[in-house]
Computed example of a mutant assay.
Amino acid sequence: MLKTISFAIVHMTVAFGVGFVMTGDLLVGSTLALVEPLCNTVAYYFHEKVWKRLDSRRVHDSAVPA
């Protein structure tokens, strides 16, 4: 979970920077920094869970004799 939080902080910083540079508006930059990374962080968390489950199945399948 710490990796996910760290990723969220980096992502929010980048989103704010891009939004602010593109629009020059602190409100737009701040809104983008909250909404877009939050959605991506939630998606990333579930993405990681799916990959861990797939990896577990691969390990289990390779350990079971045919």
Rank of each mutant, 00 (worst) to 15 (best):
H11A: 14
T4Y: 14
M22L: 10
A33S: 13
V35C: 03
V28L: 02
I9Q: 08
V50R: 08
M22C: 04
T13Y: 03
G19A: 02
L32G: 12
L32K: 06
T4G: 12
V21P: 04
I9F: 12
G29P: 13
E48R: 01
V10P: 07
G24W: 06
L27S: 01
E48I: 01
Y44K: 13
E36V: 09
V35S: 07
V14H: 09
Y45A: 07
L27E: 01
V14P: 08
T23V: 06
G17P: 12
D25C: 07
F20R: 02
F20M: 01
L34Q: 09
T41K: 02
H47T: 01
M22N: 05
E48W: 04
V18I: 15
V50W: 09
L34M: 13
A8H: 10
Y44E: 12
G17A: 13
T13H: 01
W51I: 09
T4F: 11
H11L: 15
F7C: 03
V28W: 01
V28I: 06
P37T: 02
V10I: 15
G29A: 15
N40Y: 13
E48H: 04
G19R: 03
V50G: 01
T31S: 14
G29R: 15
I5S: 07
V18E: 05
L34A: 13
V42M: 11
P37D: 01
G29Q: 14
L26R: 11
A43N: 11
T13F: 08
S30M: 09
G24A: 05
V21H: 10
V10W: 15
V28A: 01
E48L: 06
W51A: 09
V50P: 00
L34R: 06
W51L: 10
V21M: 14
F20I: 00
V28C: 00
E48S: 02
V50H: 05
K49D: 00
F46M: 05
